[in-house]
């Protein structure tokens, strides 16, 4: 734990040396949220109900979905470039020399605190949406449930990306499968009823991004309540698969040798 703290502090010092970068990165994270918001406004201006959900309900779902993504960017943003930076450029060798779990080191190599701006934006949107909905239950139990759902969503996102980062041990390409998988998250933001059955099945069971946005969030805005139990299970399962693949991949790792 002490070592983890040291990693974090060193990293923060390094980051604060370049405040311009920090600002640009923060703007970028906010912009992604704002673009999603703009798209929602466009859709809402053309219809008052999407798959039975009001614009306010969708705003709540959108705000919710920004939180796990932003936490992922902040904690594990490095996974996105794991192939290029660690496997192909050989940075993994440096990390393997240290007696500390590889996964944590990769994460601590780049903690993007500025990306927490997305969490703040997401929470703000959720609050705005909830205030506009008269029947939103503001009980402590409800809010605790919301926190658990946010946590499981984050686990889903991290688990999926850990799995795909681990696939980099088998396929050495600079970008790999990351961009399409990342963009797949967009599907998780909207009511699953919109999609063709095969796609619905795909984003709930194969790459479960529906559990990183719409399904757990819809519980609070009048959707079905089964995701309340299913989400934590899927979150744990996603993390387990990710860790398993990570272990298997690391075991077969050969350095690039440079």
């Amino acid at each position: 734990m002490r070592i983890a703290l040291l990693f974090v502090i060193t990293y923060l010092k390094r980051r604060l040396a370049y405040r311009g970068d920090l600002l640009v990165q923060m703007l970028d994270e906010l912009l992604r949220g704002l673009i999603a918001l703009a798209m929602l406004q466009v859709y809402a201006s053309k219809t008052d109900r999407l798959a039975g959900y009001s614009p306010d309900a969708l705003l709540f779902v959108l705000g919710f979905s920004l939180v796990p993504i932003s936490l992922f960017h902040c904690l594990c943003g490095n996974l996105y470039q794991f192939n290029a930076r660690y496997i192909l450029d050989g940075n993994l060798d440096r990390i393997l020399l240290r007696p500390y779990p590889v996964f944590w080191q990769v994460c601590f190599d780049r903690l993007a605190i500025e990306d927490l701006s997305g969490t703040i934006l997401g929470c703000a949107l959720m609050a705005i949406a909830a205030l506009r909905m008269p029947d939103f239950a503001w009980t402590p139990l409800h809010l605790a449930g919301l926190a658990v759902m946010l946590l499981s969503s984050t686990m889903v996102v991290i688990g999926v990306f850990k799995s795909f980062a681990a696939l980099g041990f088998w396929f050495d390409d600079r970008v790999g499968m990351m961009p399409p998988v990342y963009n797949l998250m967009e599907f998780g933001r909207w009511p699953t009823e919109l999609y063709a059955p095969w796609l619905k099945l795909f984003i709930t069971c194969v790459i479960p991004f529906a559990f990183a946005g719409f399904l757990p969030a819809s519980v609070f805005v009048g959707g079905e309540s089964w995701p309340l139990l299913a989400s934590p299970v899927v979150g744990v399962a996603a993390l387990a698969v990710g860790s398993l693949l990570w272990r298997l991949g690391l075991a077969r790792y050969n350095s690039t040798g440079s």
């Binding site: 999407l50 970008v175 961009p179 399409p180 963009n183 797949l184 599907f187 919109l194």
Partner: peptide
């Protein structure tokens, strides 16, 4: 992966606009 990415982009909006 590039083609998959763009198909996902278009697909995501296609379903929403279709509704």
């Amino acid at each position: 992966t590039g083609i998959a990415t763009y198909a996902i982009f278009v697909g995501g909006q296609w379903f929403i606009w279709k509704a």
